[in-house]
Design a binder for these strands. Structure first.
Lengths: 213, 213
DNA sequence: CGTACCGGGATAATCGATTATGCTTACTCG
DNA sequence: CGAGTAAGCATAATCGATTATCCCGGTACG
């Protein structure tokens, strides 16, 4: 009925870390989290251990937990890994996707195009709704690959990228993300694997290049 | 000095799961593990949660933990994912590797070639030493890619594959793995990215095809 | 003046017991 | 005789307290 304390604390902590409420390398003290969430130490520990498994926290033996260190280098490595893996998965998806997949891709693209990128004008951070739609579009593109392992890898890298982006100063001078997404959708639905893979590689690579050092 | 109980139990449990001491979907009862290892419930729980993070255990809310279900399908998906990702990483490694890398690749290949595959004649399972050398060779090949994210992904997939292989009946009729490894080493050190990537893709794909249904 | 040693305080790790939950089985009612 | 239900049991989840470890500051010695 009511969600388990463990689940609740885990979700709250995960959201907080991803939202940037804790600075990188900041210690995540079990005792503190336990009291603020009104639970026992074991529950806080459990939530932290689950975050470690997701790569959203680090375990320092006998020194507790901390938000993982992020920075320019990690951001670029994540982007490179995505640029390496995602186009290959997209090729599989284009080869295997059916009408159902095409439909979902169109829907996801439409949702993404219709979602405002920023909450307020001049905001530096993307809106939650847009982030969700963005992830949804990219994931939907790959879902037809029919390989849960590849999709898990995508999820993991995407989540890690969200954390890294939160702590990197990213600039996208004059970049038209919408156009890139539209072109990506078009190439995928046209079953042009070469073009789609190239577009996706370029899309992700520009993400890496958009880093202000 | 002496390793932390948590670490010890975690290592023991991890080894046991990978070694196949527990059948897939078999419940991993915290209480049982705690008593057999002479520790408290919290320690057993912690070890299990860490295993979940590695994909070596499943968490069923309010129903404890279990060894993940494996089977032909998962085995093939893992092989396909590896065949998708590893050749791409190898291209980066070939592009970026230096003399130090070449040296380590040669060393790893030599060690692998000189390690007996089976403990005893007619044994169905690979020897631990060979498994370690095999992993070492493949990982060393990729290490020059210089991308920790890709290497982490490799580690994760390899570990998952070891678990899946343990519970799949795999046959390799007339296959000469040594020759494939030698050819792979040769192509990599010759900096022939196309040939090396093709060989690696083929090598991993045959692993998937070697499944007896 | 620099370095090695030694408490004191904070925090992580562990424990044993308690509470909550989900499964099983026996029973009752239709 | 079958379906639904409720008690009992096994197990997971949680708690509060105890123990071990690390980090920091002070101090003595070279």
């Amino acid at each position: 009925m009511t969600p388990q304390p463990s689940e609740r604390v885990y979700a709250a902590l995960r959201s907080a870390v991803l939202h940037g409420d804790f600075a990188p390398q900041q210690p995540l003290k079990p005792q503190e989290l336990a009291t603020t969430h009104g639970v026992s130490l074991a529950v806080a520990r459990e939530a932290l251990l689950r975050l470690v498994g997701e790569g959203l926290a680090e375990r320092l033996p006998n020194r507790g937990f901390a938000v993982p260190a992020t920075g320019a280098e990690r951001w670029q490595q994540l982007a490179e890994a995505r640029a390496t893996i995602e186009p290959a998965a997209l090729r599989l998806a284009i080869e295997r996707g059916d009408l159902e997949w095409e439909t979902r891709v169109r829907a996801a693209q439409h949702r993404l195009a219709g979602t405002p990128v920023y909450e307020r004008d001049g905001d530096r951070h993307f809106s939650d709704a847009w982030s969700q739609a963005h992830r949804g579009f990219h994931r939907t593109l790959l879902e037809a690959c029919g390989n849960d392992v590849l999709l898990d890898t995508f999820d993991r890298l995407w989540t890690a990228s969200e954390l890294a982006r939160r702590w990197s100063v990213v600039s996208s001078p004059g970049r038209d993300g919408s156009a890139e997404h539209r072109a990506l959708e078009e190439a995928a639905l046209a079953r042009d694997a070469d073009r789609a893979a190239a577009l996706l590689h370029h899309h992700v690579s520009r993400t890496a290049a958009a880093l202000t050092e």
